[in-house]
Design a binder for these strands. Structure first.
Lengths: 299, 299
DNA sequence: TCCGCATCCAAGCGTCGCTTATGCTCGAAC
DNA sequence: GTTCGAGCATAAGCGACGCTTGGATGCGGA
């Protein structure tokens, strides 16, 4: 097995024509060079250098090795540089999966900051709801999954094998049509909306809604359910019902004909970024996580 | 510094998807693979593998390294094979320098045998007399020099720094024209030719002739001198004088009009093959030396 | 003939890398 | 639910490798 280290020394010897000069160039002692060349000749099975008096010449086999050394060492340094570029955030790719309301608020902010700090890193964004996004993460189809969970109702240990980076707590707010009796109330109890028609969000949010209402002593009459939050806002604005939905989800929606009210008891969902333990050590992934955290802090 | 050995292991891990399987393939233990991968990740500065449950996947940096590993390892094995071909006499080149009478007798026999035994080795042949041939050897312009020396008259230690492979002892024979009084003598003393005209050979042989004659008590009258031995034979055959010359030199010459006689005292020149100590270890050079020795033994 | 330069050689020592042995986790089968 | 097998990580021990230091040798130039 020829070692690349030996080829590097051989090249230096061939270039300088002397063991001592090669040692100076390589920053080691002359016996080290001498020993490495002896070792290389041993693994080559034939002499590579002929020491005739003062000068040092290559044998045919030595010339062959020096010729190959150029390509091999070039390949090695190219590999090192490419890896160093990834490690140093001058290159690299992160595959991010986010739920819809996250990808319209947190993600753009974080990616803009990431682009400014490390222009070489590329981020691809795909939208998926949990648990699909977590599944993708476990299967290696993405590097970071933005997900959310409600304080209650999520199985403990669900993400125990993952790195969970909390980003922010997203409060649920009520949304009622203008003209609704409670439209101008600063805060409403959830039970006060027991008689209204409801418009629910995504399946997990709908389940959460049902749980909260049940605790308040009633079962909501759900007339519509859609995971398209702008559509929810539109339905409420059209007077078709009331809704509770995450603050983040309506941040980028103009609530035309609808009014937001605080609801009691206060309910929050926790928005987190998930990744695999090993991926958290990857520089580009870590940097993206940091920018997501920073974007959440600014929100 | 990324080591080729690590890349080989990484490639095996990527191919098999498991440390244990890679260890089996590489013929070592699983902890060895584990440690090598940890070392490689250390020198790369970023994770290369993600261990998620059962399966093992590559990170982007890992993919980069595996991609480069193909070229680097291919280059290494190509270099190893080419050197092994030289070491194993399936390739290689020997530059041979010979004096003229050697190149017409010993050399063809040896090279034919070498070609038969190792068809891959190529030999180039150039003619030069010593000391020019020895000079070429020292300057790296050839690998083997065929030379000769007389038992007396050569400086001791002249070739002390060289490898001297004795090939054969070449006896000097006398050559007289047909019709010469001694043409039918089985053996003649050199002094009996004191009154004849002489035809000398190459400068060194001429010097040797003068020395021998001086010891016999006379100075030869040299009418012609040429290093072209067939010409010497021709001159003697034309009755222009007598000569002593190496047996080998006339072996391939038809002595037309001349007769060979043994001379007393017997004089021999020693034909040797010279090479540099390091070159003697080169397989193709060593094989050529061996074939020269064998050819000399058959002569 | 002396001196400088370069290589080789031997000894000492630190480090590296492999192996063996052990613990742990995960996934599958019963 | 429990057991079993496979695979990875870690620690200890040990052998070998490779570097450095110091000295000897040899060649070439002044």
């Amino acid at each position: 097995m020829i070692e690349a280290r030996h080829l590097r020394v051989l090249r230096a010897v061939a270039a300088t024509g002397s063991f001592s000069a090669a040692a100076r160039e390589l920053g080691c002692t002359q016996p080290a060079v001498s020993q490495q060349m002896k070792a290389l000749e041993g693994s080559a099975g034939t002499p590579l250098l002929i020491r005739t008096g003062r000068e040092m010449r290559l044998t045919q086999a030595g010339e062959v090795l020096v010729r190959h050394a150029a390509g091999i060492l070039a390949g090695l340094t190219a590999a090192e540089e490419e890896v160093a570029a990834i490690a140093g955030l001058r290159a690299g790719r992160v595959r991010l999966v986010s739920f819809p309301s996250g990808s319209s608020t947190l993600v753009p902010t974080a990616l803009a900051a990431l682009r400014a700090a490390h222009p070489g890193t590329r981020v691809s964004l795909v939208e998926a709801e949990p648990p699909r996004s977590v599944e993708m993460l476990r299967e290696g189809d993405c590097d970071i999954a933005l997900a959310f969970r409600y304080g209650s109702g999520h199985a403990a240990g669900e993400w125990d094998d993952l790195v969970v980076r909390p980003l922010l707590a997203d409060r649920l707010v009520g949304l009622v049509p203008e003209g609704h009796p409670l439209a101008d109330a600063g805060s409403v109890g959830i039970a006060e909306l027991a008689g209204d028609a409801w418009i629910a969000g995504c399946p997990r949010c709908r389940r959460q809604l049902v749980d909260v209402c049940e605790e308040a002593g009633f079962a909501p009459r759900i007339d519509f359910a859609t995971d398209d939050y702008p559509a929810v806002v539109g339905l409420v604005g059209a007077g078709l019902g009331v809704a509770v939905l995450p603050e983040l989800a309506i941040e980028s929606v103009r609530p035309k004909g609808a009014r937001t009210v605080a609801v009691e008891p206060a309910v929050e969902r926790e928005i987190v970024a998930l990744t695999l333990p090993d991926l958290a050590q990857v520089p580009a992934v870590a940097a993206t996580l940091d920018e997501l955290t920073r974007a959440a802090a600014r929100a």
